[in-house]
């Protein structure tokens, strides 16, 4: 039984780490600030969620699990609030979201024309 719980929590931790790294890659790769927020969102929701779920299984039925759960709930309330504050601040200072149309490299032009 302990073995099984260890395996489950290991899988959850690995999946959480994967999504956290994907979010960080998105943070580096995506073209502008508004797009990067989606990358940070992957880290904040599924990445942190799976990671903390993995730790909660290790914690068992103790106060540690309760505290981890509180951290998770707080993430889910705070992350959209700070995202909105960030986006709104950037928007009010005149940042323009990047789009395919505003980009003038060649391979992207054919992509956007095929979509419309």
């Amino acid at each position: 039984m302990d073995m099984l719980l260890d395996i489950i929590s290991g899988v959850l931790l690995a999946a959480g780490s994967f999504f956290i790294i994907v979010g960080a890659i998105g943070l580096v790769r995506l073209p502008d600030m508004f797009a990067r927020m989606h990358g940070a969102g992957v880290t904040d929701t599924l990445g942190a969620g799976l990671f903390i779920a993995g730790l909660m299984i290790q914690g068992g039925f103790t106060l540690i699990t309760v505290k981890l759960f509180m951290i998770l709930v707080f993430f889910f309330f705070a992350s959209p609030t700070s995202s909105y504050a960030l986006a709104n601040a950037a928007l009010s200072q005149g940042e323009k979201p990047w789009t395919r149309e505003s980009d003038n490299t060649n391979d992207n032009k054919e992509d956007s024309s095929s979509k419309t």
Partner: peptide
């Protein structure tokens, strides 16, 4: 907040 929490869409 639900829109922002879903990756891929952000309320700005």
């Amino acid at each position: 907040n639900s829109i922002t929490l879903t990756p891929g869409t952000v309320t700005i």
